[in-house]
Design a protein around this nucleic acid. Structure first.
Length: 428
RNA sequence: GGAGGGAUGGCAGAGCGGUUUAAUGCGGCGGUCUUGAAAACCGUUGACCGAAAGGUCCGGGGGUUCGAAUCCCUCUCCCUCCGCCA
């Protein structure tokens, strides 16, 4: 959420943001509602001031019965007028709030202009795609042959876009998560394991709602929703708080399942476990001072942390600077890391590194008291450390061996009993 | 699931219809003293809207009243006990 006063004073800039983002929202409706609310609120406040004056006079009238009766009658009139005005004030306030939630954040000047993902700008490429001396197999074939994946029974249990991992794939998944948690906690990030479901305010605070609500699983009987990322739970965790500057920055590394409805993606990535309804993720999250330079510094550092993990897993990757049209509403700027998928012959997204300035903090009412005693909204950032399904794809495809087994990168071996390969050889 | 108790400023904690414009303590900030710090002492200090006047806010929402932190209803969360359970 942006500062309302800022929107009021910079309507042209906000219109330009909408244009750059190719986003739709009704700024005129917002400004009109704001203007009307301010007018109605002023009337209501005048009435309340009158009410207070009368209340004081009634108190002071003491035993003077006649004056008392007269003042109470006047008070009744004011109360009646206020009662008529208040529903209007509340309704306008609610409308304004709803409209405010639809205003996107202001992209940084370094975000490339563009309409969709095709306009994202590659800023670096690291690692050479491996030259296979045999025909590499895709992750579905490999994992099936290794006895690691059952898609048919997963569909039977839970429908499309679900999967059952079996055998060593189960340990591989856990190994990746543990690897990421250990590495990040060694860097000073505090490990968290958070609830997989959260209340609505967490999703609004984080900006998943109201736009993108259809991407989230709802549990209506309990007024809860399944999180699509640990970010939701972490933002909710500190919402409404006033932290102290000396507690900042807060650095978390959170492990959680992630649930995504993938509504509207029919026909996209229908093979295997590239696009699935659940996976596990280790997420980096930072809460820092309200300082642009500091946000930028952490944004770069979060990227470097994730790159370090990907490099340790010996996966070729590239980094994209996400363009205005593909950038989530709440983000000031975003980088994606995409890992090389040999059988697709292209890079696929595995990480998303974002900063928000105080956009999430305003929605979640997350503030801090600075060293001068001033209360400010914090800045928030997050980036994937590792996510399970897509990293498994990249790992098995890139590290497959001629005999159908999977090579384990050295950094991951401590989490897999020291083994250099996993899976039984099944190819000649 | 059942019974009871509770939720007040950064934290702790009074207040239980109208001098509460929310006491007091801790913490924070500023100062005196000090080479510097600690201690002590002095001052200052809730959040939000508004240019201001003024207004809003005592877990959320609704109600009673001329007037609600205070009374009523409802929801959420926390605590204690019982039941069930990995």
């Amino acid at each position: 959420m942006l500062d309302l006063a800022f929107i009021r004073e910079n309507p042209d800039l906000i219109r330009d943001v909408a244009r750059r983002r190719h986003a739709e929202f009704d700024l005129d409706a917002l400004l009109a509602t704001d203007a009307e609310l301010r007018q109605v609120r002023r009337q209501a406040e005048d009435l309340r001031a009158e009410q207070n004056r009368l209340s004081k006079q009634i108190r002071e009238a003491g035993g003077d019965r006649e004056a008392r009766e007269r003042l109470i009658a006047a008070g009744r009139t004011v109360a009646g007028a206020l009662k008529e005005l208040e529903p209007r004030e509340r309704a306008l306030d609610a409308t304004l709030h709803d409209l405010m939630l639809l205003v996107p954040n202001i992209p940084d000047a370094s975000v490339p202009e563009g309409v969709g993902e095709e306009d994202n700008v590659e800023i670096k490429r690291v690692g050479e795609p491996r030259a296979f001396d045999f025909e590499p197999l895709d992750h579905v074939t490999l994992m099936r042959e290794l006895g690691w994946l059952d898609l048919e029974r997963a569909a039977k249990v839970a429908g499309s876009r679900e999967y059952i991992l079996k055998g060593e794939a189960v340990f591989l998944e856990l190994a990746l998560m543990q690897f990421a948690l250990h590495r990040m906690s060694r860097k000073g990030f505090a490990p968290l394991s958070v609830p997989a479901m959260a209340k609505e305010f967490c999703f609004i605070g984080n900006s998943q709602f109201p736009r993108g609500r259809e991407q989230t699983y709802a549990l209506p009987d309990d007024d809860l929703f399944l999180i699509g990322t640990a970010e939701v739970a972490i933002t909710g965790m500190h919402s409404g708080e006033i932290l102290s500057e000396r507690d900042l920055p807060i650095r978390y590394v959170a492990y959680s399942p992630c649930y995504r409805r993938e509504a509207g993606t029919y026909g996209k990535d229908t093979k295997g476990i590239m696009r699935v309804h659940h996976f596990f993720k280790v997420e980096q999250y930072i809460i820092c001072r309200a300082d642009h330079e500091e946000s930028v510094r952490w944004h770069e550092e979060l990227l470097a942390n994730s790159e370090e993990l990907v490099v340790a897993l010996e996966l070729p990757y590239r980094v994209l600077n996400i363009c205005t049209g593909d950038l989530g509403d709440a983000k000031v700027k975003g980088y994606d890391i995409e890992c090389w998928i040999p059988t697709e012959g292209r890079y696929r997204e595995t990480h998303s590194d974002s900063y928000f300035h105080d956009f999430q903090a305003r929605r979640a009412d997350l503030r801090y008291r600075d060293n001068e005693g001033t209360v400010r909204y914090v800045h928030t950032l997050n980036n994937t450390a590792l996510s399970s399904a897509r990293t498994i794809i990249a790992l098995v495809e890139n590290h497959q061996r001629h005999d159908g087994t999977i090579g384990v990168p050295e950094a991951l071996r401590p989490y897999l009993g020291g083994r250099e390969t996993i899976g039984r050889p099944w190819r000649a």
